Amino acid sequence: MKSILKYILFTLLLTFTTVLFSQQRGNRGGSSQHQGQNNLMPQQAINPQNMAEIIMYNYDEVVKKLKIKKTPKKGIVKHAILKYNNKINEIKTFNYETFDDVKSFLTKKRNEVLLNHDFNTMRESQITAREMLAPIRSKVQLQKNTLNTTFKKELTEKQYKTWLKYQRSELKKLKPKTQEKSQGQGNRQSFNRRGQGQGQRRY
């Protein structure tokens, strides 16, 4: 009789432990999924000037990067960069209100997304912000083309190719990376969960 009672108690304890473990696992899975969704939120700082591809160049860094040795050519490069930087500063000064408006607009939309989790709203707001910045970006592009035209004329072919590569790398630094990394991690986690689920069904 005692053996039967022990067996019944053991069975009940085992069943209770299994149910409790399953619930805890489910809660962890739900929590991880919720965190994954939150990670998809764009967390990078809002910088309208970066969105307008505004960049300033350091003369000494450019000369070192292009390996310019001759003094006359250094003077030409320095003059071109100073002229470019001055024009960019003018663009920043004359359009500070637009930058402020874009930052306020995107901040408001980001807060809305945090509340309603409607990520389409953020994508649409990014499109609107780019449209607001389009005239500024055109002016920046004009100065970029002017600088490149001067360098193409004054630099050797090898130096000019190095300059274009350097310019692309500097512009790339302006682009946000946080959202892309979070989306990639979220996609991998989702894929792993699906793979695990399929593996479990085979058994």
Rank of each mutant, 00 (worst) to 15 (best):
M1H: 07
M1R: 05
L5M: 05
Y7L: 07
I8K: 13
F10A: 10
F21S: 15
S22Y: 13
S22C: 09
G30Q: 10
S31A: 11
H34K: 14
Q37Y: 10
N38P: 02
N38I: 10
N39I: 02
Q44Y: 09
A45D: 12
N50H: 14
I55A: 00
M56D: 07
K64W: 01
K67M: 03
I68Q: 00
T71V: 06
K73P: 02
V77Y: 02
K78V: 00
I81W: 03
Y84F: 09
I88W: 03
T93V: 08
F94P: 00
Y96G: 05
E97A: 07
F99Y: 13
F99A: 10
V102K: 09
V102S: 07
K108M: 10
K108N: 14
K109N: 14
R110M: 15
R110S: 11
N111G: 09
E112A: 13
H117V: 06
D118C: 06
F119K: 11
N120Y: 08
E124H: 12
A129G: 02
L133N: 04
K139V: 05
K139T: 10
V140S: 05
N145I: 08
T146S: 09
F151I: 00
F151Q: 00
K152F: 05
K152E: 04
Q167G: 05
L171I: 06
K173F: 08
P176D: 11
Q183H: 12
Q183D: 14
Q183K: 08
G184R: 13
G186T: 09
R188P: 09
R188M: 10
Q189D: 14
S190M: 10
Q198V: 10
R202G: 04
